[in-house]
């Protein structure tokens, strides 16, 4: 063997920032994540030029998947113009030369923190969710090794107990976002801190969802047509946020997840959380021709 066989032509930076070995490792782990839906697969998680906890897990997946023909959309809390979403979008475009978009319908890959867009995702789209804490058992078991054993044993008794205690104490399940859900009837998964409103969008969806926690070095997935069932008792049904009757004060759109904006007079107004959906609604109201996709929720209800 010569040095020549070990080297490659010099490049100032690998395409997509990550070098080949980092990408291959993520690919190998994504294969396993897709093959065992909802099961957390450990990966090395290289450092990227962004702080841990700021979407480095999602970013590594996006950087592995992108090519110059792939349209990328990045959202944070539902908004494309959130500063960190803008920063991630700019970084991906800069290192991979990808076109970017804000329109859910145009995107091939959507990297998101804490929301799933309101328009139904298609079977050629990939949703990459940023995950701060991949371990749904952490509230009942902070030790990762013990939690891993609990997953191995499908030992979710303490999880159920915790939900039951909340019902006894508060009259309902108090879990806000990150609602623990059973995937393919086997692994309990956190859907990442998406609101309860968004969890049903993962169930038997057409698109592929990859969830990646950079700091905690875990990757997991929900393939298309896979059962994702929030943990509920048969007599206490799953309840999404009570947003069905709220109207966006800017776009007039109604029946979607809203941001509450406190007002000086003590009241609140609401604006739609999926910012591009709101923008498209305004443009259509102003007479522009805008393509609106089918939405998961219809009149504030998720058809079952």
């Amino acid at each position: 063997m010569t040095l020549q066989t070990l080297t490659k032509p010099w490049e100032p930076m690998s395409y997509g920032f990550l070098d080949g070995s980092a990408k291959r490792e993520i690919r190998r782990k994504m294969i396993k994540a897709i093959a065992v839906p909802g099961c957390q697969m450990p990966y090395a998680s290289r450092e990227v030029p962004m702080a841990r906890g700021w979407g480095t897990g999602g970013l590594q997946v996006s950087l592995t998947l992108v090519n110059p023909a792939m349209r990328v959309k990045v959202i944070d809390q539902g908004a494309d113009d959130s500063v960190n979403a803008a920063s991630i979008r700019r970084f991906i475009a800069r290192v991979a030369g990808t076109p970017t978009t804000m329109d859910t319908l145009e995107a091939d890959l959507i990297q998101s923190r804490h929301r799933i867009p309101e328009e139904v995702l298609r079977e050629d789209q990939v949703l990459v969710l940023q995950v701060p804490n991949p371990e749904p058992l952490r509230p009942v078991q902070p030790n990762m090794s013990i939690a891993r054993q609990m997953h191995a044993d499908a030992d979710y008794g303490r999880m159920w107990l915790q939900l039951y205690e909340q019902i006894v104490r508060s009259g309902r399940v108090m879990q806000g976002a990150s609602y623990p859900s059973l995937v393919h009837g086997r692994h309990v998964m956190t859907p990442s801190p998406i609101p309860r409103w968004d969890v049903p969008k993962l169930h038997m969806a057409k698109h592929l969802t990859i969830l990646s926690a950079g700091r905690e070095k875990r990757i997991f997935a929900v393939p298309p047509f896979t059962r994702v069932e929030p943990l509920v008792f048969s007599d206490v049904p799953y309840k999404v946020e009570d947003h069905a009757g709220l109207t966006c004060h800017r776009s007039g759109t109604r029946g979607f997840f809203m941001n509450e904006i406190p007002q000086d007079d003590g009241s609140s107004v609401f604006e739609v959380s999926d910012s591009e959906w709101g923008v498209k609604a305004i443009r259509r109201r102003d007479g522009e021709e805008v393509a609106l996709g089918e939405t998961w929720y219809k009149n504030g209800k998720m058809p079952s």
Partner: peptide
């Protein structure tokens, strides 16, 4: 978003 979700509950 997470805050809103908890507020709702």
């Amino acid at each position: 978003v997470t805050f809103q979700s908890s507020l709702d509950a």
